[in-house]
Deep mutational scan, measured.
Amino acid sequence: MEVRTIKVFTTVDNINLHTQVVDMSMTYGQQFGPTYLDGADVTKIKPHNSHEGKTFYVLPNDDTLRVEAFEYYHTTDPSFLGRYMSALNHTKKWKYPQVNGLTSIKWADNNCYLATALLTLQQIELKFNPPALQDAYYRARAGEAANFCALILAYCNKTVGELGDVRETMSYLFQHANLDSCKRVLNVVCKTCGQQQTTLKGVEAVMYMGTLSYEQFKKGVQIPCTCGKQATKYLVQQESPFVMMSAPPAQYELKHGTFTCASEYTGNYQCGHYKHITSKETLYCIDGALLTKSSEYKGPITDVFYKENSYTTTIK
């Protein structure tokens, strides 16, 4: 009895394709271990004539594949690729409408935090270190965002349907971005203890939790000093293409032309909904596939993004 075979390709990165001759009487799992086709788990399936010449994702289970996976995804987590594939199996079914010149995501599976993050990423200057993220990001900007969303979920250790947080998501993504040249110098002034300067680099240099107003941050924000008295913390120097200011959701007025974009969060910790506000020729609110415009805006804002380049204080 002759062994019926077909020729397929296996890959971990969709760049390096490895030619395989597979036995049609055995499952993919018996031949390769966990195997995925377009995100779908085909591990328990036997090869079919229609699979001839198709590319299958496999887990990096030998040295060659491990090197290829690390170079593309910059992670050695053995569960990463499987999590990416199972997320992709959902995100490829989502709709990605162009809204006001940006790629958004039609609401499904509690994905409003991903839509808000995706919209924000198209408006701030950011370059990702893992080629996987950078490639998928370019495709997302062009309207094909399924891979990018699935990668975000995998890097953030999230599953489809789980509630997510924009600030946490951005923080994970910033860790995989090139923020080497970003720098922030802060000064804390206390009447009792004097003053202390701190220099922050990388992710810490672009994120701040405690106030939404970048102007206020430049002037000074009140913080408790270690001595128990009130101290003032203010920005001395900022070198970065953008800054992200966050605070627990509270009524906040966004003035046209003073910011790049913002995240609105309605609801409580267990259950809520994100919308995205962007400042173009007027203010726009993007909620999944829905767009509304207004000249002014007041609502429960939790993150505001500002364009920056270089700032030095005039406070002496």
Rank of each mutant, 00 (worst) to 15 (best):
K106P: 05
Y72S: 10
G228N: 02
L212K: 06
C112V: 00
H273P: 04
G228A: 04
T292P: 02
V8M: 12
L81E: 06
L17Y: 12
V67D: 13
A69G: 06
I105T: 04
D62G: 10
K201T: 15
P224S: 12
T76V: 13
Y252T: 09
M245Q: 06
K219G: 07
V67M: 15
T64G: 12
G299E: 12
K201P: 00
K316D: 15
M170T: 03
K219W: 08
N49T: 13
Q98T: 14
H48I: 14
D109V: 01
K92G: 05
Q196S: 13
I277W: 15
S86E: 11
I315S: 15
R167Y: 07
S310P: 03
M24Q: 11
K46D: 14
M244N: 05
K127G: 07
P248D: 15
G267W: 15
S50T: 11
N178T: 06
D23W: 08
Y306G: 06
F217N: 02
G164I: 01
D180V: 06
G257A: 06
P60R: 05
H273S: 00
E204V: 08
V67S: 14
E71D: 11
A108N: 03
E162V: 03
K229A: 13
H90C: 13
D109A: 06
C182V: 07
T76K: 08
L173W: 02
K93R: 14
R66W: 09
K191Q: 12
T10H: 04
M26L: 14
Y137F: 15
L81W: 09
A40P: 05
E281T: 09
N111D: 09
W94T: 07
K280C: 10
G194H: 00
K158E: 05
N16G: 08
T282E: 11
V42D: 01
D165E: 15
E2I: 07
A247R: 13
F242D: 01
V206T: 01
T211H: 08
Q196D: 08
K275V: 13
A108L: 02
Y28T: 06
K106C: 08
G257P: 03
F128D: 01
V185N: 02
E215R: 05
K183N: 01
A69V: 06
P60L: 03
V42Q: 09
A262E: 00
K92Q: 14
P47C: 04
S79N: 15
Q122G: 03
M85S: 05
Q270Y: 10
C193H: 03
W94K: 02
A205L: 01
C182D: 07
S246M: 00
Y138D: 15
E52I: 12
L121M: 10
C261D: 00
K298F: 13
N110E: 03
T76H: 13
G299C: 11
T198Y: 13
Q123M: 04
E308A: 05
E52F: 12
Y274V: 00
A262I: 00
E52C: 11
I124D: 01
G194M: 01
Y72R: 10
Y214Q: 07
S213F: 03
A145R: 02
K293E: 15
D165M: 14
Y311A: 11
L163C: 15
Q216K: 10
S86I: 06
L65W: 09
I286F: 06
Y36I: 06
D41P: 11
Q238I: 01
L114I: 10
L88W: 11
P47G: 07
E296Q: 12
Q238G: 04
A289N: 13
C112D: 05
A250D: 08
T19V: 12
Q237H: 15
Q175S: 10
N61Q: 14
T232E: 04
T19G: 11
I286E: 01
T211N: 08
Q31I: 15
F9P: 04
G299P: 00
G39W: 06
G210R: 06
P300M: 10
A154D: 05
N309M: 08
D135Y: 09
N49S: 11
V304Y: 00
K106E: 15
F259K: 02
K93P: 07
W107A: 03
E71Q: 08
N110L: 06
Q197F: 08
H51P: 02
S25C: 12
G220H: 00
V8R: 02
H74K: 07
A136E: 12
K280T: 09
P97L: 12
Q123F: 01
A140K: 02
Y96Q: 00
L212D: 03
N16M: 15
N16Y: 14
Q196I: 10
F259V: 02
A205E: 00
E264D: 08
D62L: 06
N100R: 13
Q122H: 04
N129C: 06
H74T: 14
F217H: 01
C149F: 04
S279V: 06
Y208G: 05
Y84T: 02
V12F: 08
E253I: 04
T10Y: 10
E239Y: 04
K7D: 14
D287S: 00
G39K: 03
E68I: 10
L114G: 03
N187L: 11
P241M: 01
K255Q: 12
Y274I: 02
I286Y: 05
T302E: 01
S294P: 08
E168D: 02
G202V: 05
V206L: 02
N61G: 08
V166G: 02
V304L: 02
K183H: 10
V21E: 14
V188P: 00
Q251E: 14
G161Q: 05
T198P: 02
F128C: 08
K183L: 11
F56Y: 09
D63A: 14
N16T: 08
S50Q: 14
Y306I: 03
P131G: 03
H48A: 14
P78G: 12
Q195H: 13
R66C: 11
S104G: 13
Y72N: 07
Q237K: 14
H48L: 13
R139N: 12
A250Y: 09
E144K: 09
M85H: 15
A40L: 13
N157C: 15
V189N: 09
T314H: 15
Q216I: 03
V243H: 00
K219F: 04
V189W: 07
S213A: 07
P34I: 11
E204Q: 15
H48V: 11
H176P: 01
L81C: 08
G267L: 11
Q122L: 03
C285H: 12
Q238T: 01
I277H: 05
N309H: 00
A231M: 02
A117M: 06
L102Y: 10
F174P: 06
T27W: 00
S181K: 14
A69D: 09
E125I: 04
Q31F: 12
L151I: 01
T116Y: 02
L290N: 14
I223Q: 10
G82C: 14
H18D: 07
F80E: 08
K54D: 13
Q195K: 14
N61R: 12
E68R: 06
K280P: 00
L254P: 05
E168S: 14
L102F: 07
K7I: 07
Q175T: 08
K95N: 09
P224W: 09
D77L: 05
M207C: 09
Y36H: 06
V99P: 00
T314N: 15
V189R: 09
G33F: 02
C261S: 01
S25A: 13
G29N: 12
I223A: 13
Y274S: 07
Q270V: 10
Y155G: 00
K307D: 07
Q238N: 01
D13E: 15
G33A: 04
L235A: 01
L119K: 07
C156S: 09
D135P: 00
E308I: 01
Y28R: 06
V58L: 08
G220S: 04
Y208N: 08
S104C: 14
T11K: 00
K307M: 08
T260G: 03
T5Y: 10
T282Q: 13
N147C: 11
V185S: 02
T120N: 15
Y274C: 15
G288W: 00
C182G: 12
K293R: 10
K46S: 12
L126D: 00
A69C: 10
D287P: 10
C193E: 00
L102Q: 05
L59D: 11
K298I: 13
T103R: 03
P131L: 03
A205G: 03
P224I: 12
T91K: 02
G272C: 00
Y57G: 03
T75A: 12
M24E: 08
Q251H: 15
T313A: 15
G228Q: 08
Y297S: 02
K46I: 13
F70H: 09
L186M: 13
C149W: 09
I15C: 05
C271A: 08
N110W: 01
F80Y: 01
V243E: 02
T192R: 12
A117G: 03
P97V: 14
V304D: 00
S246G: 00
K280R: 13
I152P: 06
G210Y: 02
T43M: 09
T75L: 10
H51Y: 06
T64K: 14
C225E: 07
Y137A: 06
R184S: 12
G202C: 01
G202I: 01
Y265Q: 00
N111F: 05
A117Q: 00
Y113L: 02
